[in-house]
Amino acid sequence: MSEAVPIDFSYIIDEIRSGTLSQSNEVALKTEEFVERIIAEKDWKNAQELMNLIKAEIKLISEALPLHTISTNILRHVLNIIREEYDIGFKSHVEQSLHQMMTSDSDAMGDYSKMLDGLKTSIIDHLSEYKTELETSIDNIAAQATDHIYTNEIILTFGQSNTVEQFLKAASRTHSFQVIVAENAPSYNGHSMAVSLANHNIQTTVISDTAIFSVMSRVNKVIIGVHSVMANGALKTACGVHAVALAAKHYSVPVMVLTHLYKLSPTYVSSYSFDACSSPASVLPYSFAGDIVSRTNIINPMFDYVPPELVTLFITYQGGNAPSYIYRLLSELYHPDDHEL
């Protein structure tokens, strides 16, 4: 299946929906390959047409998978790459800022329809660099592990994250430390995380979500992965991480978030809930007193919002950043005109 990447993103959408493609890194790579195919094979004459093609895909994906931001973020970044290559080609520089407002001949701004030779090759070159970046992202993050974890520390993590797993395994090669994994009911993926860490000879303890505050007084660091990062540095994570962050704040334990750049979304969230819930059967089984279940409202939210003041550090492949710096990373990744698509 992976040999022939389809030119139609709907195949990838189906895979994501059915759960066969769930790891964020794989989704990122597949999306990137898909973009390469579009650029290589589809019919376009200038930058504007190409961007329109990609914008159409973004629209398609955000309608089909409203909660899924990785692919749309990567496509947005590709739009930025196209604009960059175009500008380099025409030696103009368009950047929305106070400076730009003052200095540009504004009418020339935003016109991408001039023909430019070699645009295709330069875009494809840039994309292959980007692909390498995506492939090595986890390893680069894991390579920073020894800077942050020392011997005999107790680290708390929540549920399952591939990035965090690699990070901890990398650190365990040189230091010995303990990991406490919160099981993350109702998906219980903390259990498989614990098994995976233990198979790597890391001393692991599994606790239920209720014990997070109790053990936090003994924890040295909290290391978590996220679903996506908002533009103000807030996090969209598995349900339950907000409680972890609050407990960490109370005991002054640093919270370190491992994230890839394609998880940074240029959106701001105006309310605390993401309006997404999953099946209540994982919370209260139907086998428990059917008549009680039918008279109760069972809540099982998918995501949690963690405000930026609870996060100490973001670790990306480039290094560590404070939450207040996220806006800068965003401005390098996406063009402001592409924020709302």
Partner: peptide, 23 residues
Amino acid sequence: ITLLITDIGILTPSGVSDELIKL
């Protein structure tokens, strides 16, 4: 301050200094 909503985008307070420095 949580956010500054300006015509050059929605900024966090730390982003203001960035804009001014560029200018």
